[in-house]
Amino acid sequence: MRLSELSARGGVSVPTIKFYLREGLLPPGRRISSTQAEYDEEHLRRLALVRALIQVGRMSVAGAREVLSALNDPDLDEISQMGKAVAGLPQPLPPAGDDGAARTAEESAREVQRRLGWRVVPENPAHQTLVSALSALERLGFPCDDAALLPYAELAERLAEHEVALIDTFHEPTTRLEAVVALTVLYEPVLLSLRRLAQAEQATRRFAGGPADAAPDA
């Protein structure tokens, strides 16, 4: 397909696609003349992924480029590519610090992972973000020991089993990598929204007399 068709099918303007090409977010098309190139379904799928990273995931162009570089790194095996791609996604919290709260949080994070048989990788950005969040809870006096954390981790494990099984339904390694990134970016706001909806429902049932007292769905 020509650039104009890629633009129409992808819902992205031609100037924006040219910008993505210049920035290395999209691979170049197959050159058919000095001024024209052809693009294929791989470009269309990658364009959708770039839009998800930048528009939904709110990533910078440089951050998106870093994540996407894992998809084409020939020196990494597939699981390492997945890890590099996810590690490049934005991390929501700053470092935990170095006080008593941070040390308690670190031990809680390690213990709950050990209890579930997970490998503890302190340099994993997700581990560091977990410790940072638990540190903040500890400083505010909210429960964040491994007993309080374990139900969350057990739910996360069930969710991860579902997601990895879904990713495994894609047969091409590149498509699986794209699915890892897309599901991570796009389902995090879905999970947050569902959690808040569930909290509202449970709070209504516990504190306001049950579902019958709730306002009807608009």
Rank of each mutant, 00 (worst) to 15 (best):
residue 128 Q to T: 07
residue 138 E to K: 07
residue 132 S to G: 04
residue 133 A to G: 11
residue 122 P to W: 10
residue 137 L to G: 06
residue 118 W to V: 06
residue 105 A to E: 04
residue 127 H to Y: 15
residue 129 T to R: 13
residue 131 V to M: 04
residue 110 R to A: 12
residue 99 D to T: 01
residue 138 E to L: 00
residue 124 N to L: 06
residue 134 L to N: 04
residue 113 Q to L: 10
residue 99 D to Q: 06
residue 124 N to R: 12
residue 116 L to N: 09
residue 105 A to P: 05
residue 123 E to T: 15
residue 133 A to I: 06
residue 111 E to G: 00
residue 137 L to N: 07
residue 119 R to L: 13
residue 105 A to W: 07
residue 103 R to L: 14
residue 108 S to Q: 07
residue 109 A to S: 12
residue 121 V to R: 12
residue 136 A to P: 01
residue 126 A to V: 13
residue 103 R to W: 11
residue 120 V to C: 06
residue 123 E to S: 14
residue 136 A to W: 13
residue 129 T to F: 00
residue 135 S to Q: 10
residue 103 R to D: 06
residue 107 E to V: 13
residue 132 S to A: 15
residue 105 A to R: 05
residue 109 A to H: 05
residue 113 Q to V: 02
residue 103 R to C: 01
residue 130 L to T: 14
residue 123 E to Q: 10
residue 123 E to K: 08
residue 105 A to H: 04
residue 132 S to N: 00
residue 111 E to P: 01
residue 119 R to I: 13
residue 129 T to A: 15
residue 125 P to A: 06
residue 121 V to D: 15
residue 131 V to A: 01
residue 129 T to N: 15
residue 110 R to I: 00
residue 103 R to I: 05
residue 134 L to R: 01
residue 129 T to P: 00
residue 98 D to I: 09
residue 126 A to P: 01
residue 98 D to G: 07
residue 100 G to R: 07
residue 105 A to Q: 05
residue 118 W to N: 04
residue 111 E to H: 03
residue 132 S to D: 07
residue 114 R to Q: 14
residue 125 P to D: 07
residue 98 D to C: 09
residue 103 R to Y: 02
residue 116 L to S: 00
residue 102 A to K: 08
residue 118 W to R: 05
residue 101 A to R: 01
residue 106 E to I: 04
residue 136 A to R: 15
residue 124 N to T: 02
residue 99 D to S: 01
residue 103 R to M: 11
residue 135 S to N: 03
residue 103 R to E: 13
residue 119 R to S: 12
residue 98 D to H: 12
residue 100 G to C: 01
residue 99 D to H: 08
residue 129 T to M: 11
residue 110 R to K: 14
residue 100 G to H: 11
residue 138 E to N: 13
residue 135 S to T: 15
residue 115 R to V: 00
residue 99 D to E: 03
residue 115 R to P: 02
residue 127 H to R: 10
residue 101 A to I: 00
residue 112 V to Q: 05
residue 137 L to H: 10
residue 130 L to S: 09
residue 126 A to S: 14
residue 134 L to Y: 03
residue 125 P to R: 04
residue 109 A to N: 06
residue 119 R to C: 10
residue 107 E to T: 14
residue 122 P to E: 11
residue 116 L to D: 00
residue 116 L to M: 11
residue 127 H to V: 08
residue 110 R to P: 00
residue 119 R to E: 14
residue 110 R to C: 06
residue 118 W to L: 15
residue 132 S to M: 06
